[in-house]
Structures are given as C-alpha cells and as structure tokens.
C-alpha cells in the first residue's frame, strides 16, 4: 500500500492531489475556503478569542464570534482546552457572568454530541412531529435549484447561500435565517437543507447541524423558528443586502408571516 504525500509545493498542488484521491467529488465542486486546516491555524484563532465582547455582540453578523468551529468539529482543538483558555480571559474576581454566553455555546456542542451518542437514528429522522400545521409529506424532498444557485428572490438569502458556498462558514444567525427560509418559506424537508449545509460547511457536523435543523423545523422543539426582515436587518446590516425591496418575501410582522407560512396554524 502506498503512502500519500505530506509535502506539496503549494496549496494548488495539494488541492489537485485531494481531487485525484477523491473520485466521488462532483466535477463542478470547485470552491476552496481561505480557512486553512491544521493545529497552528486553530491555535492562532484561539489566541484571538474575546469571550467578553462575544457575550455582548455574538448575535450580530459582525460580532466577536470565534470562527473556531471547524477546528472543534474535527478535534483539532478540544472543547476542554477552548473552555480552559476562555476561563483565563474572564474577570479575575471569578465572576463568570461576562463569559457565560461563550461557555454556554461551547456546551451546546457537548449537548448535541451527547444526544447523538444516545440516539444516532435522530440524525436523519424526525424526532417529533412538525408543529407547523403540515405533515412531512407536505415538504419537498429536494432543494429548489434557485436555492442551490443563490438565485432566490431574496437578496439577503442569496448572500447567505453564496457565503456558505465560497467560505464554508456562516454565522449562527445566518444559519438560522437560511435554514428557516429553506424549511418554512420554501417548504422543503429539513433533511434536504441539512445535506446542503453539510456539503459546504467546514464545520458541518451530523449532530450540531441536523439537530439544529430539526430545532428550526420544529421536529425537535416546541415550535417552528422563523424571523422577519426587521430582525434580519437588525443583526445582518451592513454585511447582508437588507433593503426591503430586495427581500419582500421576508417582510411583515410576525403575525402576518405566521399566517402566511403556517396557514393551518401552529400546534404545540
């Protein structure tokens, strides 16, 4: 058996080699992220985290999020060492409040992994019924082409899709918006959305991704998650194109949108 090479003249040479040993890749799968693999890159990001600023700004696309997810996903950094590092950055008087949010988000990963361990069959199957007034068969099995090509009639959604496809990363809030758009606006099965995310996210993880999709869909939560344009504008400006004229399908009050998206009424 032949050993694969571990030195390359440059990144392009490495990419060609990856292609050569990956015959299953679609010929048109051509994006590579600027995010580089390896422990050194992960530690470099870890040294830059600011868990206190994170607590204040994490919901904004431009907030002080860590970008650690692909490194944590593949065990390049352990959750334990990330937490230990964050504790060192907390207030010296032992007050945990300012770093609580960051550590709680790390705990979400631990939680999803524990759920995965206990119930591997939940990763691709509805854990509970939809609470959207619809049955699973009311949802399409496949992702519409205008979604996979970022040609929907909502500019902000297209921006999220393109970001996902080119960088392999999306901010948590953008993941929620895009997942909700796919499942509730386009009435597509969460599984099809989850598959699309897994194919592009560098951190794509069966548990964190699919169970979050089920949380959005309401098959693993008490109600469906949806949003309106006003909320999206608050957290996504100026990164995403948020003008109402370019995002009409997302505009309206929560009551109006609930009536449009869930005409049969939401159950619990």
């Amino acid at each position: 058996m032949e050993n694969q090479p571990k030195t390359f003249a440059n990144r392009d040479a490495l990419i060609s080699h990856v292609r050569a040993i990956s015959p299953s890749l679609a010929p048109d799968d051509s994006h590579v992220s600027d995010t580089v693999g390896g422990r050194e890159a992960g530690v470099g990001l870890l040294e830059k985290i600011d868990p206190i600023a994170y607590g204040r700004s994490r919901n904004y696309l431009g907030g002080a999020v860590s970008y650690l997810s692909p490194y944590i996903r593949h065990g390049i950094l352990s959750l334990n060492e990330v937490r230990n590092f964050a504790l060192e950055l907390g207030p010296k008087d032992g007050d945990i409040k300012p770093i609580e949010k960051f550590i709680q988000e790390l705990a979400w990963r631990d939680f999803w992994q524990r759920v995965y361990q206990q119930n591997p069959s939940w990763i691709w199957n509805d854990v509970e019924d939809y609470k959207t007034g619809f049955a699973p068969e009311d949802y399409s099995d496949t992702l519409p082409e205008d979604v996979s090509t970022a040609q929907t009639d909502c500019a902000a959604i297209n921006y999220f899709i393109t970001t996902l496809q080119t960088t392999g990363y999306l901010h948590n809030h953008a993941r929620m918006y895009l997942a909700a758009y796919i499942v509730h606006w386009r009435r597509v099965k969460w599984q099809a959305g989850a598959r699309f995310f897994l194919a592009h996210l560098l951190d794509g993880d069966p548990a964190s991704n699919n169970l979050s999709f089920q949380w959005v869909a309401s098959t693993f939560s008490n109600k469906p998650y949806f949003f309106n344009l006003e909320n999206l504008q608050k957290f996504s400006h100026p990164q995403a194109p948020c003008e109402e004229a370019d995002n009409l399908a997302l505009a309206g009050s929560y009551d109006d949108l609930a009536a449009r998206l869930f005409p049969n009424g939401v159950s619990s």
Binding site: H31, R195, P206
Partner: peptide, 25 residues
C-alpha cells in the same frame, strides 16, 4: 458524509502536521 472539496482540503491540510501516515482506500 457529504464532504465536498472545501472540507476535504481542510482535512488534508490538517493531516500534514500530524504524526500519521496517510493511506487511501
């Protein structure tokens, strides 16, 4: 696992500095 090119490049780059031999198969 649904891994596209981006992920595979990230994984291969990660392997470069690890004390492992890589075999394909």
């Amino acid at each position: 696992m649904e891994y596209g090119l981006k992920r595979r490049v990230f994984l291969y780059e990660t392997l470069l500095d690890l004390p492992v031999e890589i075999y394909a198969g």
